[in-house]
Design a protein around this nucleic acid. Structure first.
Lengths: 218, 218, 218, 218
DNA sequence: AATGAATGAGCATTCATTCAT
DNA sequence: TATGAATGAATGCTCATTCAT
């Protein structure tokens, strides 16, 4: 059972802060060839955005790195914002899928195993996640407002995992736990991403132990 | 027979004389009036950078928001990079000062009190810190390299606090602890910064409890 | 005791990543329309540079005078230096072609005729030449170094004409003669260019006679 | 006997092509200290203008190189144009003085000696002269108009030398000769200035011989 | 008078987006 | 439909000149 309702609710009508220009959205590719090209474009966009940031990245370079003409890029993504949104949405789908899987298995897991599952889900998508966040950050005037959408969605999904795991807990309790857990997952993912530094292995282990105990002692 | 070899040999590699990059630094204001103006400029820069990000922020808007002409801005900060660096340095000085104070008091504190001191130091500067990080991130091609400078410096200082607190611990152990603690401090600061969300108070309390126990059980 | 050593070590020397200078060159126009536009742009650039000098000339005015938008100018000439270089190169091609033609006919000419050919070649391109020189001059810090490239090339080509004309002369002798001849050609071209002044016709005739005798008596 | 009437007639009313702003002129220094400072300022200006060209040279650097505050520079030279004009005028005075001296001695010289005197006068001031020309060029919209003033003045003075030397020649003849001689003097000076190149010594000798014979055969 | 900080018009250059081909 | 040349608003930065101190 998959929860489509949990996927990222990015409201296209709010895409441009003011004077919404008739809801620009990425065009769905129809043919096989289009699907492959869109994937290539998104990958190129991801790498360029990650390297240079939203503003500094140029549409021209993204198209070039995908081996596509600039006109083709604009065929599928009518402007830079839509392209960034597509990347964020793609990340949203990935975590949603991962959390869906965890929620299904949750009833059979003990605290430590659930902790590991969640932690690993985040470590796996760490790079994609930090890109999504920076894209959201870069384009929103009131900082924190848009990333909030992503965060809330993730918290809700984690809370759903907890509900599946321990159905008897209260809604409020699960909500607070979801907040703590999400933060812990982000933190571990960050510590994991960072290249090499003194005490890395030990710190990672301590942090993971912390989370396991948090869920075990529950 | 024509001599192609005789055509003008203009060496394109020498095209730009490329004057010495000249380690540009912010100019210290001399007069009273200048000191006040520099503070205003830095504040304006902080708010514009925070709202729009490094690349999207314009020097013109920063100057305007400080009520200063563009030439004045450039008088003190010869380019956009220097301005951003000044902001980062200002944050660095602030935390350094806070951590210095904590280190001095450390010997007299128990674990819970030390945890509170550290946590509060970060919560206090949370906004400034996230700005500094995003500025560092935005300007470095190899992402993560530059923010590393900030992170390492903070970890070192936290480790020094621990050394002042429990002089008998091993260097390696303190290093790993510093990594964990810094991440915990950042996390709490983030949870604290976020506007309002279900479970905020409870989550904050749990997180703080976590850190207190981490230092107390040590 | 406070730790100054812990404050943020931001290395100012690394401030600008300094991407590879990238040998910028004028882009060849692909389409028919582009070729005509490039020609118009070069002509406009020539007239603006000639009137105002390299530094004082503005890209905006050059584009405007060519009836082209500024973006178009930058499409073909990625910066002001490249534009100036293109003008210099164009002059180089013109004289080179003229001197090539003279060298081919040289064996059949007597001294006076050779003198006339060389002199006329320079008079024809006098305006273009003085523009090229001033552009070279204006953009080089060590003045004289760059114009030297042009001068050397011309001297070499004149020496080649002399070699074709009188194959038995010594290399050194031809070199000195080329120096004298080039200077004489420039001088006549200058006297010729100048609007009107008392004694112009007579002076021109004397000068030309000088050069003819120089080659005839040889 | 010195000819004040021959000194450079730069009309201050024409200083700015349009809307003459009440004839700005360099202020005469009154005291001893002022005279020394003006000399230093002019020397600094000469070197900066020579290195970077009129437009690229900055008033700030000129003042700095003279060890004077910028305000002091503006005290004596109310704007950049006036400063450049002062340099041109200084060159004019120098050659005028040299040519005055030659004219006085002319009656006692033979052709070769007169040629040598004139040639040397120009070689001596070659650098100053090329600076003056480039300054004139750089600031005048209609190219050639202003340098013309300098050229005409020099031709007139050379013609006066010739008149003192051979009083019986006709006015027209002297005028044409002056044109040829001036051009020859500029040419020799240029060949002389240039660093090192194959055939330099030989070319210089040939050129000088040319001029000597020109005056001797007369 | 002497100084040098402050000012802002002006310039080179970039890049998202369009539209002729 | 697909392409990529063309467009011009917007941005970082400079520097002659002024004027408060």
């Amino acid at each position: 059972m998959t929860s489509q309702k949990s996927s990222l609710p990015i409201d296209p009508a709010r895409q441009k802060p003011l004077a919404a220009p008739a809801a620009a959205v990425a065009k769905e590719p129809k043919r096989q060839r289009g699907i492959a090209r869109v994937a290539k474009l998104l990958d190129a966009a991801a790498s360029v955005f990650a390297e240079q940031g939203y503003k500094a990245a140029t549409m021209t370079e993204i198209a070039a790195r995908a081996g596509a003409p600039i006109g083709s890029l604009y065929q599928f993504f009518p402007n830079k914002d839509v392209l960034a949104d597509a990347l964020v949405a793609r990340y949203g789908e990935h975590v949603t899928a991962a959390l869906d899987r965890i929620r299904e298995q949750a009833p059979d897991l003990d605290g430590a195993a659930l902790a590991d599952s969640l932690l690993d889900a985040f470590v796996t998508h760490a790079a994609e996640r930090s890109l999504a966040l920076s894209l959201l950050d870069a384009r929103w005037e009131q900082p924190g407002v848009r990333p909030g959408v992503l965060r809330e969605s993730l918290r809700r999904q984690i809370a759903e995992c907890l509900a599946a795991w321990r159905p008897l807990t209260g809604e409020d309790e699960r909500q607070a736990m979801a907040v703590v857990l999400l933060q812990a997952m982000k933190s571990l993912a960050q510590l994991h991403e960072e290249k090499r530094y003194p005490g890395k292995t030990e710190a990672l282990a301590q942090w993971r132990g912390w989370v396991r105990r948090y869920l075990s002692e529950f």
